[in-house]
Nucleic acid binder design. Structure first.
Lengths: 342, 342
DNA sequence: TGATGGCTCTGCAACGATGCAGACATCATG
DNA sequence: CATGATGTCTGCATCGTTGCAGAGCCATCA
């Protein structure tokens, strides 16, 4: 199973190991004649460099790790794709791991037996691990954080402006004349910073329009999955004074909500308009297609990888807080007629 | 940046490097007193083993690579999740790469500069690379193939029975009384083996029911994406005698077809019943929810990883052809009333 | 002719860990 | 007391590669 090494090639070609290495890498000058002879033996034995040995010598692996909560959540799958692509164009490959939103698994990464040392850097989309934990564990692997946890400037960090994104989504609904706009996805507890930022944006939009927020219209969910979106929508529909629009904190919640609305016989957007956030491809083909706030995922991935590589090269000053643009994409789920404002 | 090595710890604790290694690994007996002293220094310096060096010495990395066409295609995302999970429980981590269905990128894997040698094994879901190419390149990394390319027994191989799966889907529609069942997704060219197997199953179902296949109802597509499913459906609807059911070769095509049907004002399943294949989560929440043939993805992943690990340990005889079970899941897109057979 | 420089090519050491064989001390046994 | 067994601990070699310093050799030039 084990292939030939530089030594095997050297012996067969009657040259030094070093010369074979030079031929393989094209580093030092080698006469054409000798190069041809060595190359012939390389071909004959089908030599492949042992990358592990090379990595040890050079102190780098050319691999970065991407850690996300769940790879089969479309947002993360689409993001992972972009990260892999961005890394590839920069000469890196990507190991992917999932934490299943399990804080212990996130912390494992920082522990003594973590495989993190095999990677030149780490892109982490954290759910529950805190900045203190990250800092405490004197981990030696450069890290870039993704997503929207609030980190106090200790780590480089790439995200959209969540407050603005939620405000844009909500204002879109208010401008359409909707006056009872619900919000699905708040997470009013320690690890729910992202959700709380979105709730803040939702409130800002109301404030800008001089409207009171009906607290009963803010429905928390423990996760951002389709089923929970559907359940939340059902609860909203059971209210005596149900909403005429709903802003869901991600597209999956929105697609679940749409499903519940259709099952309940409501028309979208005539009876209830729906807006999501993430712009997953599924939302383009759902019925109705989904209005959403689209983060620039390619840009998130590229900035994250670039920042990580800077950090790996030791070129980084203060950890940057990178804000990536987003934009509202209006589709059928909110494109219905505008009702007259009161 | 570089952390302390065994040598640093040994020097500080006044013991041999070897003893520190023994403490770290718990290999050889070390007296309690000495162990405690060494452990204290390990903690003090926050020693982390250099996994690359360990890998070099042991000749293995504990990493396998998973190569899929597109990670943001839900089927592959869900499969990747299962592979990562299966690998983790067996002590491995997973590097993921995408080929974008580009044959050259698949072949790169086998080339001289491939990073494949960094991994203990490779799970490959090939689109265009052939068995000959795989065999030709004397690659030394154990491989397991996923998906349904026909490989002539040279490589271990995990897949569902595509003919049976397609037959089950088609028969389901025929049993509902549908008589003009279309097929979307044939690929009548070299790299379309999977699609061709599904077409064969589609024909078998018709034969079993003593029905002729209307060749005009078989619509090929170059890829298995939503947009192409919608376009194919539009073409079918434009026919003078349009279908009353459609079997799509994967769920994305089916979801695209559903989208086109709704836009055209057709009722599902009353006017046209739809069946997909893959059982991606999205199909549970679409409107209507999607009848589909579900491969056991967890089993595919587990068998693939187990087979790969056997191969890595050199315990493999003839390369196994593993067939994983599938089952039909009936949902709204085909659950409408049964028409009387003619 | 001898010094100089450039071009090739080589051997040694090192990256940081582990396998192996053996050294040494201690203790029990005949 | 000699012997062997046992339990700890150590040093050397090694995994396959690359960095470094330098050894030859030839041509050039004064």
């Amino acid at each position: 199973m084990a292939g030939p090494t530089l030594r095997d090639v050297a012996k067969r070609a009657n040259v030094s190991i070093r010369t074979v290495s030079n031929v393989v890498n094209g580093y030092a000058p080698v006469s054409d004649e000798l190069r041809a002879r060595v190359q012939a033996v390389l071909d004959e034995l089908d030599y492949r460099p042992n990358l592990i040995a090379r990595n040890l010598k050079q102190g780098r692996t050319g691999m970065i790790a991407l850690v996300v909560p769940e790879l089969d959540v479309p947002y993360f799958a689409e993001l992972a794709r972009e990260v892999i692509t961005a890394a590839r164009t920069r000469g890196y490959v990507v190991m992917i791991d999932q934490t299943d939103g399990d804080g212990d698994r996130e912390r494992e990464l920082l522990g003594r037996d973590s495989r993190a040392t095999m990677f030149d850097g780490l892109v982490l989309s954290p759910l529950s691990v805190t900045a203190e934990e990250l800092r405490g564990r004197g981990n030696r692997v450069p890290i870039v954080l993704l997503g929207e946890h609030i980190f106090n400037g200790s780590f480089p960090h790439v995200a959209i402006d969540n407050v603005a994104a939620a405000r844009d989504a909500t204002e879109h609904l208010l401008r359409l004349g909707r006056r009872r706009v619900a919000a699905i996805g708040d997470q009013p507890y320690a690890t729910g910073e992202t959700a709380q930022l979105r709730t803040a944006g939702y409130r800002q939009a109301h404030a800008r329009h001089g409207l009171e927020v009906d607290e009963a219209l803010i429905v928390p969910t423990t996760h951002f999955h389709r089923r929970l979106g559907a359940e939340a929508m059902e609860r909203l529909l059971a209210m005596p004074d149900p909403p005429d629009a709903v802003f869901c904190y991600n597209d999956l919640l929105a697609l679940g909500a749409i499903r519940a609305l259709i099952r309940a016989g409501r028309r979208i957007p005539e009876d209830v308009a729906v807006v999501g956030l993430d712009d997953i491809e599924e939302g383009q083909y759902s019925t109705p297609s989904l209005t959403t706030v689209a983060p620039d995922k390619g840009e998130i991935a590229r900035r994250a990888v670039d920042t990580l590589l800077e950090s790996i090269r030791g070129e980084m000053g203060a950890p940057p807080e990178i804000v990536v643009p987003h934009r509202l994409i209006v589709r059928e789920s909110s494109a219905g007629e505008v009702r007259p404002s009161i």
